[in-house]
């Protein structure tokens, strides 16, 4: 089954063709350089850019897969979770494609897409497992009971982890996006140089909070001349604090659910320190750990197509009045636990 995936929930305009778990094309037009000039993502700018890029991106997905419109069996699109103005563009395009090609339309929750980024990369990931999906827009712990059967265990109470990276990067004058900037500087720093808080690290809840950590860093160094700041040490200590919280919460969640595996997805899962620490900690606990292919960590449409194919297998599809819902909860589908 050939599925066209479309994803425009934030600042990437993406389209992909996926056939039965094989990625035939995965096209992403990144707006990152554009938003870097603003020091962060500007919703109206993102929405406009999506309209400009969407047609080219869809065409490129067909061209590089060597497929034609008539071969498509379904269209899947991120319709839930993200910037509403951005989601609207992808949903508009997906509806038009599905209607014109007379194929089913499937609206996908963005977080479900990230869960499938790992399943697409590592089809052998055991079920159930616990998935941490962590990026500039979200930090969520999900108990993946079955394909398309979820329980959200924890969420961020304030900033997403990637957002904290962006804010600290801005504070230190390292630019946007913050993740890669802090990671590369951190390699030259001492991660034990500063004693930063591990917010909610010991609490029983699986929720996250990063704004206190951000404030501690800012309070510790504000008013100081940037030239005198030990930037690599700050970057390394801050990164370690974030990673420590992510690792400890995810392992707690895995233990709580008694699963044998965890997956870490989303843009922040590219971070090498995070991958190393997760691998080491999971090894000690006897847990398997899975990361998506690097090109499937950040937002992409192949993961959306994969999630769409899974939902369609369970007979689930959307109507043509599908709406874009920025704050929708992650929903399971009807036929619980049954492999169709």
């Amino acid at each position: 089954m050939l599925v066209l995936g479309i994803e425009t929930s934030c600042d990437e305009t993406a389209a992909a063709l996926v056939a039965d778990g094989t990625i035939l094309s995965n096209v992403i037009a990144s707006q990152i350089d554009l938003h870097a000039r603003f020091g962060g993502i500007v919703p109206e700018v993102a929405s406009r850019k999506h309209v400009e890029a969407i047609g080219y991106v869809i065409q490129e997905a067909f061209d590089s897969a060597g497929k034609t419109h008539t071969e498509v069996d379904a269209v899947a699109v991120t319709s839930k979770y993200g910037l509403v103005g951005s989601l609207i563009v992808g949903v508009s395009a997906a509806k038009a494609m599905a209607y014109a090609l007379k194929v089913p339309l499937i609206g996908i929750h963005h977080i479900e897409g990230h869960i499938f980024a790992n399943i697409l990369s590592n089809p052998g990931t055991p079920l159930p497992h616990v998935c941490l999906t962590v990026s500039g827009g979200h930090t969520m712990l999900v108990h993946v009971k079955e394909l398309c059967q979820y329980e959200v265990m924890g969420n961020t109470l304030d900033d997403a982890a990637g957002e904290a990276f962006d804010k600290i990067s801005k504070f230190l004058g390292l630019g946007f996006p913050g993740g890669p900037a802090i990671e590369s500087l951190a390699t030259q720093g001492n991660r034990a140089a500063f004693n930063l808080p591990r917010p909610l690290g010991r609490s029983r809840s699986f929720d996250f909070s990063f704004s206190g950590l951000k404030t501690s860093v800012v309070n510790m160094f504000k008013g100081r001349d940037r030239e005198t700041l030990p930037l690599p040490d700050i970057a390394a200590s801050f990164q370690q604090a974030v990673v420590d919280v992510l690792v400890s919460k995810t392992l707690q969640a895995a233990l709580h659910k008694g699963v044998s595996a965890v997956s870490i997805t989303g843009g922040v899962s590219i971070n090498s320190r995070l991958r190393e620490d997760f691998s080491a900690a999971c090894g000690r606990q006897g847990l398997q750990v899975f990361f998506p292919r690097r090109d499937l960590c950040t937002d992409n449409a192949a993961m959306v197509a994969a999630a769409g194919a899974a939902r369609l297998k369970y007979g689930e599809m959307s109507q043509l009045d599908l709406n874009a819902i920025p704050n929708a909860p992650l929903e399971s589908i009807g036929c619980a636990g049954k492999h169709c």
């Binding site: 929405s47 309209v51 609207i88 508009s92 395009a93 509806k95 038009a96 209607y99």
Partner: peptide, 19 residues
């Protein structure tokens, strides 16, 4: 309306492209 017109333009141009 910026949002309204984005819906119309995106749908119309994608329909035109698709057929």
């Amino acid at each position: 309306s910026w949002t309204g017109v984005r819906v119309g333009v995106t749908v119309a141009k994608t329909l035109a492209y698709a057929v």
